[in-house]
């Protein structure tokens, strides 16, 4: 199993994506601010409730 490689590609590769974004011209704090005033705090809810039970969905979700 190539788990060490998976760590590099997924975990470190994910971090590199954000680092590349930060180097790409923004200050890295938010390359995609919400519309309008960027100092406005995030809205009350970032996710809808959908059909989720109050304690959360219990999978499975993996292959």
């Amino acid at each position: 199993m190539k788990l060490k490689r998976l760590f590099q590609v997924l975990v470190l590769g994910g971090g590199a994506l954000v680092a590349a974004t930060a180097c790409g011209g923004s200050d890295g704090t938010s390359a995609n601010p919400p519309p309008g005033n960027t100092n406005v705090p995030p809205p009350h809810s970032l996710l809808p409730d959908g059909g989720t039970p109050p304690t959360g969905y219990q999978g499975p979700t993996i292959w």
Partner: peptide, 23 residues
């Protein structure tokens, strides 16, 4: 199910001010 979840996560990340790459 994952498709619906990722779509909602994309909107949530946008609202939270995450980088466009992640959205």
């Amino acid at each position: 199910g994952a498709s619906l979840r990722f779509a909602a996560l994309s909107q949530g990340m946008r609202a939270a001010g995450a980088p466009a790459t992640l959205v």
